[in-house]
Design a protein around this nucleic acid. Structure first.
Lengths: 252, 252
DNA sequence: ACACTCTATTGATAAACAACAATGTCAATA
DNA sequence: TATTGACATTGTTGTTTATCAATAGAGTGT
């Protein structure tokens, strides 16, 4: 339950004092270089649920690291319905898909109260010019995103509703665990609707799968509070190769 | 019909003489620097249809630019069925999703006789260290891939069979056009089966949609030969925002 | 505490697509 | 010209999941 890392939420924590630094961009930098990164980072007020960080079509100028809370990114289909492309949790980097165009290709919106670190991209690029490790880290983040998208495409084109939800929960669990939180028990930051949208399912289907999973005693769900009661079977259902989620296999 | 660019298929064309260079990595380089890139490129014998460039799990060492022919990349689900993650046409770069791990996360296989330029990644990285434009180009390629994957996820989670096929054809047309070929009339390098696999559809569904499209006089298909007879309506069906495929809207 | 709205659940029905099966087409090879 | 095998098409049947509708529950603001 309790975080293993001493997470601080104060507004103006410097990178060198931030508990997320071993997961975030600073991981590429030597101690003495972290302040260089810190110098270019802008930290604003928290975003309230529903507020946008940027809109699709806005001029691209910065990438953002989530400090606390959660974001979603989405595009709009031409019929005006939204398609959620990703959820972002603390330490994760938002906005990198825009860097080959002059505008953001998606909108980014807070799904709960959220704090971000803004990193102006021109300055980041300049810093990367003198810090090869930083630029390799950025490439790694992008490469990882491409691999995750491949998994997601597999999910969307081959998996059924049960497998999609199982995969989603296992993936969330492993992301919580990485940050030092329990992977057994956590709170979903997104609604059933958002989950369904992301997974290519109707809300009703999501709801029914949750009910089914509870009857099968795979999970216990109370609103957004989730407890994974049978991680092994859930993992098997997810059907993802274990290599994709090694962290979660190791049950505490 | 006839290629606008004077495409050469000889085995040992240098970057500076390659007709694809304005679409490929060299586009980031000044004339005098292109030879530096050329020096690190290895050009092997052509791959026959079905031959692999690399297998999932192989040690990651190189990225590859397709010179002629076509490749697919795929992963295997744990039930052993393959999921095609992408098709690669000439000038496109394969293998970038592996660069944050030590192994390729997908297998790459020729779907017709194919020639590639192999670019050892350690050398490319070293070259990029001294050529900022080159490394920005690599980032752009990755960023573009992420955006395309977003569109693909949208396709897989929101579009029906007709829309998927229409989107796929429009996308192929625009890629042909970019290389100076006709976007009205071209030859598919993949089978119906591979197309269905990629688009999350059964072969039979692909076949039926093709039949339907012909009856509606949107396309004329004869085996793998495709002629787009009503690009406007096909585009509308694809439902992709026009901004995603600006090249194809301009009907010759 | 109250209405009010948004979100979640559950049931009934319908649509889209997959799965299966049979047949047809084409190309390579004998 | 047969023969084989891979690929494509078409019809039939079956499953899954979306859609519609009704209800219940949670959260918000007055």
């Amino acid at each position: 339950m309790a975080p293993k890392l001493n997470v601080r939420h104060a507004s103006q924590v410097a990178c060198r004092d931030c508990s997320l630094s071993p997961l975030c961009l600073p991981l590429a930098l030597k101690i003495e270089d972290i302040d260089d990164l810190d110098d270019i980072i802008k930290r604003g007020r928290p975003l309230k649920k529903g507020e946008h960080l940027f809109l699709e079509g806005d001029a691209f100028h910065s990438v953002f690291a989530v400090r606390s809370g959660a974001l979603k990114t989405y595009t709009s289909t031409n019929e005006g319905e939204e398609q959620i492309t990703e959820f972002y949790l603390p330490s994760e980097l938002v906005g990198l898909s825009g860097l080959d165009t002059d505008t953001y290709p998606v909108s980014a919106q807070a799904i709960e109260t959220t704090m971000v670190c803004e990193i102006p991209f021109d300055k980041l690029e300049k810093l990367a010019d003198s810090h090869p490790a930083l630029r390799r880290q950025i490439m790694r983040v992008m490469s990882k995103k491409i691999r995750e998208d491949q998994q997601m495409k597999l999910l969307l084109s081959k998996k059924n509703a049960d497998e999609r939800i199982a995969t989603f929960l296992i993936n969330l669990a492993s992301r919580f665990r990485r940050r030092g939180f329990s992977s057994q028990s956590f709170r979903l930051s997104m609604s059933r609707n958002e989950m369904g949208n992301y997974l290519g399912l109707a809300v009703e289907t999501v709801s029914r799968v949750f009910t089914r999973f509870q009857k099968a005693e795979l999970i216990h769900a109370n609103g957004k509070e989730i407890e994974i009661t049978n991680a092994m079977d859930l993992c098997t259902l997810a059907g993802g190769k274990l290599s994709d989620t090694p962290e979660v296999v190791n049950i505490q």
